[in-house]
Design a protein around this nucleic acid. Sequence first.
DNA 1: CCCCCAGCTGTATGTCATTCTGTTGACGAG
DNA 2: CTCGTCAACAGAATGACATACAGCTGGGGG
Lengths: 149, 149
Amino acid sequence: MTVDDIDRQLLAQLQQDATQSYAVLGQAVGLSAAATHERVRKLKASGVIRRTTIEVDPVALGRGVAAFVLLDASTWMGDEPTRRALTEIPAVEEAHIIAGPASVLVKVRTATTEDLQATLRALHQVDGVTSTQTVVVLESFFERQPTVM
Amino acid sequence: MTVDDIDRQLLAQLQQDATQSYAVLGQAVGLSAAATHERVRKLKASGVIRRTTIEVDPVALGRGVAAFVLLDASTWMGDEPTRRALTEIPAVEEAHIIAGPASVLVKVRTATTEDLQATLRALHQVDGVTSTQTVVVLESFFERQPTVM
DNA sequence: CCCCCAGCTGTATGTCATTCTGTTGACGAG
DNA sequence: CTCGTCAACAGAATGACATACAGCTGGGGG
């Protein structure tokens, strides 16, 4: 699908607030409510908009400690079992196969450093993992969504 | 604010799909539409729900290459000017001050590896940055929102 | 024992999403 | 040049839903 400039404006608006009406949304980009609705419908149908969701405050939910963990592996970890094992650890928010100093990079969020320790233990027990290296986040400047413009 | 089990169920549901009606949402947790509405209103008012937003497909928007970049610094980078400088680089999606092998960890997304190179150049020009170390993402297992349950 | 209040249900109303119909403008074929 | 086609849009209609309101209930404190 081709995403033109108006579409990007709509995406930017919806990233800010997905609850605004199509009338308001249309005014912001100079279109009628119906035309806006049609464009948003197509963006959803084509998968550019994956879903509309809520952004939660991690701290309020007991996930105030963030860290990145590098996993070294003795076997190839790019397969489904590894993915599933990592998915099942609730603290793991992202998992990536990387090129560089390790095999896998995961981002974790826990309530306390004790929970972080427990998560590291869980990561060690994932098949293939031989060692971990943890980078603790002291302060987050910002975490935002992909820039659309 | 105290977040009880029903609240967490609501949050989980809304993370999946923030467009469903309060009636449907209420059925999922065993409440009336009005009571559900009231709970969600409070979750928003208290900041547990920061906003409702859309999740976009990075690839469709020309951000198919992801990487993590470690920044080494000669000066303290925990202040506002650094934050602003990093915010202004569109490819930078996250920026964290870390404890460990470097001062700052940023996550970037670009269309191509050439754009990644351009972003690295931009990062080098941020005040205080002395060197960078880049970890390129080969494949993402998953990137999800904070687990609420 | 009674009062109070948070949290709930059911209902009413105004707003908005969604659909439909018709218009306009760009484009290609004849 | 003209006609036919199609995509994109505006405006109006209707049906669903958010939101507000009036009462009900059960538990905790005075």
